[in-house]
């Protein structure tokens, strides 16, 4: 049963559904108080609600999906890790003087198998978000991530990364500490590891900050997650010279899971519970866990060298161009 009632942070397009659902609830309570049998009416209304939900969530526009991907109640990296793994221990520090709260990682077991897990961590509320820098990682975060991946590779543990960031932190200190170098280094090193790497976009995949932990054997993405070269707001400001054109930019940039599958960038779309992952976090975690286990099983049948070669080939073929010789 989706827990839609009295949910805070309602998005515009969720409102009609929410109204209908609270109405059903009211009728049920009234009927109970007055001892009247309304089960048939309720069944009809519930069917109607189900139909409405289906309509709303199957026709979401890219900018509506962006709102869902940024939903404050959407499960975060630590929510998923705690839901899908056992023996989780968070590990800290880049060994260079910094521990980034916006990019977390550690060891645990997925269905018994030892794994290293990491991801961007957004906050639950404003206070938490300020502490987590809204999931925008610093160079130290990317260096912690690569340290943990090197550890995983050394001890032959698969690497699971969870992507959920508006982008890498754009600040004076981040530049001073080499944000560009930190991300670049990760991109190259992730090609050098021979353990399986699974990357999942759980919410918002923002630009280089997302890619910095996003080079793997498989890219998975939740149905309502987005992954974009630049935030639609920034893109609108630059190309349209008008930040208000963000919805157009969101559509033009092709940021949804379906679009990215068609472009040959995404491998697997993970379906979400009927009202989105935020309405049923445990349901979403179950779907994620099953997909991760299945893909690990396949990847573990390959030799380490095969995994490296296939990972290179997977990225090598991304891009659309004309060879200019009639081909």
């Amino acid at each position: 049963m989706p827990a839609t009632k009295n949910r805070p942070f309602l998005l515009d397009f969720e409102k009609p559904l929410n109204e209908l659902e609270s109405k059903i609830e009211q009728i049920r309570e009234l009927a109970q108080e007055n001892n009247v049998d309304v089960s048939r009416e309720i069944r009809d209304l519930e069917a109607k609600a189900e139909q409405l939900r289906e309509e709303i969530f199957s026709t979401l526009s890219p900018s509506q999906r962006l709102k869902l991907a940024r939903h404050p109640r959407r499960p975060s990296t630590l929510d998923y890790i705690q839901a899908i793994s056992d023996d989780w221990l968070e590990l800290h520090g880049d060994r260079g003087g910094y521990d980034d709260p916006a990019l977390v990682g550690g060891v645990g077991r997925l269905g018994g198998m030892p794994v290293v897990m990491m991801g961007h961590q957004k906050g639950r509320d404003t206070k938490d978000n300020v502490a987590r820098n809204f999931g925008m990682a610093s160079p130290g975060g990317y260096r912690k991530a690569i340290r943990l991946m090197e550890h995983a590779n050394r001890f032959r543990m698969p690497i699971l990364t969870f992507i959920d960031t508006p982008g890498a932190w754009a600040g004076v200190e981040a530049e001073e500490l080499g944000q560009g170098e930190a991300i670049a280094y990760n991109l190259r090193e992730m090609f050098s590891f021979d353990v399986p790497i699974l990357c999942t976009v759980i919410g918002e995949g923002g630009s280089g900050g997302a890619l910095g932990i996003g080079v793997g054997d498989r890219l998975l993405m939740f149905e309502h997650a987005v992954y974009t070269v630049a935030t639609p707001e920034a893109c609108a400001a630059i190309l349209w010279k008008d930040a208000g054109k963000a919805p157009q930019a969101a559509a033009a940039l092709k940021i949804t899971a379906r679009d990215l599958k068609d472009l040959g960038i995404l491998d697997i779309i993970l379906p979400e519970p009927s009202s989105g992952a935020h309405a049923d976090p445990l349901g979403a975690a179950g779907i994620l866990k099953e997909a991760l286990e299945q893909n690990l099983e396949t990847l573990l049948t390959l030799t380490p060298q095969q995994r490296k070669d296939l990972r290179y080939q997977k990225f090598r073929q991304i891009g659309k161009f004309d060879l200019g010789n009639g081909e």
Binding site: F191, A230, C235, I255, Y312, I318, G319
Partner: peptide, 25 residues
């Protein structure tokens, strides 16, 4: 990155870095 090619542009960063990894090896 060239925004007009969307995520295809972003992925070129990874692709080139992968080629450099082989050159380095």
């Amino acid at each position: 990155a060239r925004m007009q090619e969307g995520m295809l542009s972003l992925m070129q960063m990874a692709k080139i870095s992968g080629a450099l990894e082989r050159h380095r090896q």
